[in-house]
Every structure is written in structure tokens, then in C-alpha cells.
Computed example of a mutant assay.
Amino acid sequence: MALPMVVGVDGSEPSLRAVDWAADEAALRGVPLRVVYASLWEHYEGTSIAEGLAKPDEQVLAEDIVDTAARRARLRRPELDVRTEVLTEEPEYALVRESRSASVLVTGTRGRSGLAEALLGSVSLIVAGHAQCPMVVVRGTHDKQAQAGTRGRIVVGVGEKPAGSAAVRFAFDEARRRGVPVEAVRAWRWPAREATDDALTAGEPARLHEQLAVEALHAAFQDVPADVASHRRTVEGPTRSVLVDASRYADLLVVGARRRPGHFGLQLGRVAHGVLHHSACPVAIVPEKG
């Protein structure tokens, strides 16, 4: 049985854009869409009862949020099997648990806290560090709807252990579904300690590090399908800045995240953390083994 696409909602505009993206993606994959709202409303003391419904106000709100999101998804993709769930627990824990039985977990950039959208909401940030399946944070548009892919490419950042990368495989699978090419990007730096004033040797360290970046791209492409068009690019500069720049021309930016078993602290590295805050397009965080 195909695992569902799961989207976390809270009634905010960013979460509704996440519903749009998730509905399109679920339709592409041919899987059900599961709309989830999580809150500890039942544990609040003194919760008022909604008039005539014999339900707490927060429960009525939660049910309205998931029903509205489900209607939106069905209007966007009438063929989609849409299911809803209201969970009475902290959203961070609920969504991480949902990720164990999901094909992809989707959230918006932030919730109803009113923070600037340049900042990632705390729920999405925590969940991105612990999700057991690929997680997509929908970014890159400031209207009330997610836009269909128009830039025609998937960008994937190639990391330190490129061979067998789950992020690279995910990027190629997404590109195949959408009928677009993959651009694999590897950033490299010239360490300051290798700087030299000798004009005859000044270029050697740079060429060495660039060559290592080229080799990393080559290793990343060892097991990828040949039926998807792809491009490889090395760029000198900080990885976060390079990938954020590349996101401006992408429909989806894919990066890997390596988990530390048994550790519940912040799991995201600086690169994933940075692109989640500043990418110009949706970001997929893909768990990597090891």
C-alpha cells in the first residue's frame, strides 16, 4: 500500500500554501493526502464550550481548519483521496510520528505566530530535524496560493558523502515525475590557511579544491537513472549562500540531513538550517544514513 503524503496545517496562510503544494505532489505520486492538525487544546483548563455544539472552542476550530484545508485540496485536485486527522498533542511530536508512515511530510514556513516569513517557524524547524521521511517546507511565494513549478528544474546540493546519497535519489525521482532536469551543485572553498603570495603557485590550491568538488559530483551520479536530464555545477563560495542563490531558479531545492541516533537535540546542520530560512523555493530535507 502506498504511503500517504502528510501535510501539517494550522489555519495560517503558509500552511494553506503547503496544502496546495502537497495536493499537487500527492496527485503526481498517486497517493492519498492526509491533512493533520495537532494541538494540546484538550489539556487547557477552563476551555469554553462552543454554543450549541457541546464541543470546546478549540476543537471546533481544529475541525474547521482541517475541513477547510481538505476542501481546498479537493478543489485543486478533484481526483485526490483526501483524509483528515485532528490530534490532541504537541504538533512537533505529532508530525515527527506521522513521518514514520508517510511518503513525504509537508509544512509551511511558519504558523500563526505573526513572525516575519523570512524566519522559519519553530514547529517546522524542529520537525525538519527529526522527520523519518523526506520533509518539504514550502517557501518562495507571498500570495495565498502555491504556484505550480514554472522554473523547470530541481536543484540538489551534493554533500560530503555523495555516494549513495538519498537526497540525490529523491531529486531525480522528483525530476522524473515532473519531466524536468536536475541540477546538482557542489560548493567548494579555498581555505585561508592555504593562501600564498607566490604568483606561480597561488592557483594550485584553488584547482585542487575545485577538482575535489568535481569528483564529489561524479561520485553522486554513480547510481542515478539515465532517463533524467541532469547538469553538474561546482561553485566557489559558502555552501549555504551557493544553494540559496541556486534556489532562485528552482522549483524545489533538495538537501540531505544526517541523523544522530538517540539524540533529540537540533539535528540540522548549518547548511540545511540556512536554506530552510532563506531559500526562494520549497526545500526538501532528506534523511541520510550514517
Results as ranks from 00 to 15, higher is better:
R169T: 10
Q132P: 00
Q147W: 00
V271F: 04
E89N: 03
R100T: 13
H231D: 01
A202Y: 13
I154F: 05
L40E: 07
G8Y: 01
P205I: 09
V242W: 07
P191F: 04
V182N: 13
L53Q: 11
T68C: 08
G274P: 11
A163D: 06
A118H: 10
V104S: 05
E204Q: 12
V155L: 09
L33M: 02
V82Q: 00
L87Y: 05
S39W: 05
R176E: 00
S12V: 09
D197G: 11
A102C: 09
C281H: 04
P78H: 02
Q59L: 09
D67P: 02
S101E: 00
H263P: 15
A26N: 08
H278E: 12
V104E: 02
F221V: 07
Q59N: 13
Q59A: 08
L268P: 10
L87V: 06
G274F: 01
V242Y: 10
R233N: 07
V104I: 11
E63F: 00
W190Q: 14
V66Q: 09
L243I: 14
H263T: 14
L75V: 10
L115M: 13
A229I: 07
T109N: 12
R178W: 07
L16F: 15
A69G: 10
G140D: 06
V283C: 04
A54R: 13
R76F: 01
T88F: 14
H43T: 14
P261Y: 11
R233Q: 12
I285N: 03
E117Y: 13
S113C: 13
R76W: 01
M1Y: 08
V182L: 09
S103Y: 13
A272N: 10
R193I: 03
Q59V: 07
E210I: 05
H43N: 08
V182M: 09
H130M: 02
R233H: 04
D198Q: 02
S247F: 00
R97Y: 11
E204D: 12
Q211M: 12
A118D: 02
G256C: 10
R193N: 11
S230Q: 09
R177T: 08
S124T: 14
